[in-house]
Amino acid sequence: MKKTTQNNYVDFLGEIKERIRRAQYDALKAVNKELITLYWDIGKMIVGRQEQYGWGKSVVENLAKDLQKEFPGIQGYSKDNLWRMRKFYLQYKNNEKLAPLVQEIGWAHNIVIIESCKDNLEREFYIRMIKKFGWTKNVLIHQIENKTYEKTMINQTNFSKVLPEEIRSQAKLAVKDEYTFDFLELGEEHTELELERALISKVNRFLIEMGGVFTFVGNQFRLEINGKEFFIDILLYHRRLKCLVAIELKVSEFKPEYAGKMQFYLSALDDLVKMKDENPSIGIILCKGKDRMIVEYALRVSGKPIGVATYKITARLPRNLKKEFPSPEQIARLMEEM
């Protein structure tokens, strides 16, 4: 086979593979939607009959036994799962916004959300994040346990001012106010180099905590400007935002000069590394602590997109941040733009 013909064939094979993958994905989506619809209907029927005839708990237990006898080997009709179907229907039956959305994620995801989330805004957040970023069940559990919803809603960035409107909301949702690195074997006192090495040694866990749609580009990423070398602690790439993400690690409290240094890095990345079709590079300064007012002043004058977050080795959300939480109306508006 001639080289040009072989190249054409390779391209052709690639197109066929991609088409098959798309068909497989569409088929899985269709099966999932049908399964969720079935479970919704069963939950609705159980609730309806209990209300109509005054049936108690025994109807679910009897139903589970008879269905498992009628459909041996088919999972999903246990007593516990039938109760989940009932709860699923009751949770969303009067919610016109969420009822269609829950059909677009898996049953296992739905159960985790129902059993772990406190209100409909939190549920909507995780449903939309699963759809957008393809979180697995385990990633979802990790994000809920580490309070990603709360930490995302109170994050500190200047994205509203400096990013293009079409990616502004997605970018806000890509940065948390606090990251939990409880998978690191580090003492409370450590150096920036020790923190960097520990994160790189467990880069997969690090990327999951960052949000699950980042890819690792490098650490101590080298920039050469007029014969001088500069190094970015960690450089990632956000696949949805299509942009480079520079991360600076600080084991101290945030200082205003950190924003100036990050602004320098982002200018250099945009000029020297960013591709023409990519969005502006984003910076995340990860600090041991921060004063929110100092961060606000520092970001107010920055012309580059920067977020300032803290990190913890153990999972906890400081109580004093509860007052920083946005109103339900503000949260709803942000999620509508996802």
Rank of each mutant, 00 (worst) to 15 (best):
L186R: 03
L244N: 06
Q75N: 09
M1K: 05
Q263N: 14
V308M: 05
R22Q: 13
Y265M: 14
A171D: 04
E229G: 09
V203I: 15
N110D: 12
Y89I: 14
A268C: 14
D66K: 03
N219C: 04
K118G: 02
E296F: 09
E145P: 01
M338A: 12
C243W: 02
A108L: 07
I127Y: 12
T191I: 01
E51I: 09
E209N: 09
L186S: 09
D233C: 06
E324M: 13
E70N: 09
E192S: 04
L38M: 11
L140N: 08
N146S: 13
R19E: 13
E165Q: 07
F88L: 13
V60A: 08
R86N: 04
Y53W: 10
E336S: 14
I331A: 06
L173R: 02
V59L: 13
E296D: 15
G73H: 03
E224H: 05
E166K: 10
F230E: 09
W107E: 01
N81P: 03
I141L: 10
S252F: 01
N204R: 11
N81Q: 15
V217D: 04
A171H: 02
V112E: 11
I154E: 09
V213P: 00
Y39L: 09
E124C: 10
E229K: 14
T191S: 15
Q220W: 00
K137P: 02
L266S: 11
N120S: 08
G303T: 06
K322H: 11
Q330G: 00
E257G: 07
K261M: 12
F125K: 04
V175P: 00
G283N: 05
T157K: 02
V59Q: 10
A268T: 03
W107F: 15
K131C: 12
R19S: 14
E122F: 08
L195S: 03
A332F: 10
K304D: 06
K97L: 12
G56I: 02
N155C: 10
E224I: 14
R239C: 10
Y149K: 01
K87R: 11
K65T: 10
E229D: 14
L13D: 06
I200V: 13
K33Q: 15
L63Q: 06
I42E: 05
D66P: 00
A108H: 00
I141S: 09
T157N: 15
I225N: 14
S327L: 12
K132A: 15
E18S: 13
V245I: 11
L28T: 02
E122Y: 08
K2S: 13
